[in-house]
Structures are given as structure tokens and as C-alpha cells.
Amino acid sequence: MAKIESPVITQIGIIVRDIEQTSEAYAQFFGIEKPKWMRTDPLEQTEMRYKGQPSEARAKLAFFDMGSVQLELIEPDEHPSTWREFLDTHGEGVHHIAFQINGMKKMLNLLEEGNMPLIQKGEYTGGRYAYVDTLKDLKVILELLENDPKL
């Protein structure tokens, strides 16, 4: 089995049907300010690929910084994505745990060799992400986050 270079979980991603309602519930529960949600960038910017094919899928995202771990709420749109597939198959709930890494291509190759295939990948301002199918062995999807070096 492949090994992750950083055993520190930086994010837990949760799929939701209504980001406003769920954000409010988390804010009230923790006694913190409700974050504003943002929409992911379009395909032209993200170059998103889902199961090897370009996808126009977008999502609403809200982030709660909870010390060393960030909670990410994700409300997917109707287009094909790992987020939409998860919501349609499993309903709301924990979708992934994320790790900060360096060397995305190398890590994806190692995971692929360990029968942990890439599900979805894309770019964001300042970096890139990849979701890897680790459900069989780890019972959750892994997200790899790689930020560009700060100049």
C-alpha cells in the first residue's frame, strides 16, 4: 500500500444539500461566525477532470477553520463530479479527509500503483487538488492538496 508523506489531516470535507442551512447549524453549534460560501471556479480555470473526462461541475464551498483542521462544507451542482456522485449515492456526510503534500504527480503515481486510482482533479488559485479512491482500504476518499511555492 502507498504511504502518504504527511500524516497530518488538514481538512475534513462534508457533502451537504443546503450550504446555508448547514453552515448556520455549524456556526450555532460551535458558537462562531458563519462563513460566507464561495462557488468553485468554472472549468476554464479549474481544468477539472472527473473520471478522466472534463467536467463543468461546480460547487458551493464554506470553510470553518477549527484549529489545525478545517471543515469544508460542499454543496454540489447537478453536473458529474465526485461530490454529486457521493450525494446521489450516500446522501449527506463525510466525503473526504485531506492532506497537504508536495509532488502531486509522484504521489498520484504511487497511489495508482497501490490500486488507489484518481477520481477527480483540478486547479485552484495557488495550487491543485486530487481526490483518490481509497474507499476499499481506508473507508474514505483522500484529497491531496498541493499549494504552489510562495515567491
Rank of each mutant, 00 (worst) to 15 (best):
S23C: 09
M38G: 06
Y50D: 02
D41W: 13
P35F: 01
M48G: 15
T46S: 15
P42A: 15
S23F: 09
R49N: 04
I32G: 00
T46L: 12
D41M: 15
E20F: 11
M48L: 09
T22G: 00
E47L: 12
I19T: 06
R49G: 01
S23A: 13
E20G: 12
I19Q: 01
Y26N: 08
M48K: 08
F30E: 06
P42T: 11
L43W: 03
M38D: 08
E47I: 00
K51G: 08
W37H: 10
E33K: 14
A25S: 09
K36L: 04
Q28M: 10
W37V: 08
L43C: 03
M48C: 14
W37N: 13
E33F: 05
Y50W: 11
Q21I: 03
K34Y: 07
F30Y: 11
D41P: 05
K36S: 11
E47M: 14
S23T: 13
P42Y: 10
G52A: 02
S23N: 06
T40K: 05
E24T: 11
R49F: 03
A27W: 01
Q21F: 00
F29K: 13
R49K: 14
A25K: 02
F29D: 02
I32C: 09
D41H: 08
W37S: 13
D41S: 14
Y26R: 11
Q53A: 07
P35R: 01
T46R: 06
E33R: 12
T46C: 06
E47F: 04
K34S: 09
L43R: 05
F30N: 02
W37L: 09
Y50S: 04
I19S: 03
I19K: 05
Y50H: 12
L43S: 04
F30Q: 01
T46G: 09
F30C: 05
T40P: 05
A27R: 00
A27L: 03
R39L: 10
F29L: 15
Q45P: 00
G31M: 08
K34P: 03
D41A: 15
K34D: 08
Q53K: 14
Q45F: 07
G52W: 01
D41K: 12
K51A: 02
F30S: 01
K51I: 05
T40V: 05
P35T: 00
W37Q: 06
E47W: 01
R49L: 10
A25R: 09
Q53T: 07
E33A: 15
K36V: 04
M38I: 15
M38F: 05
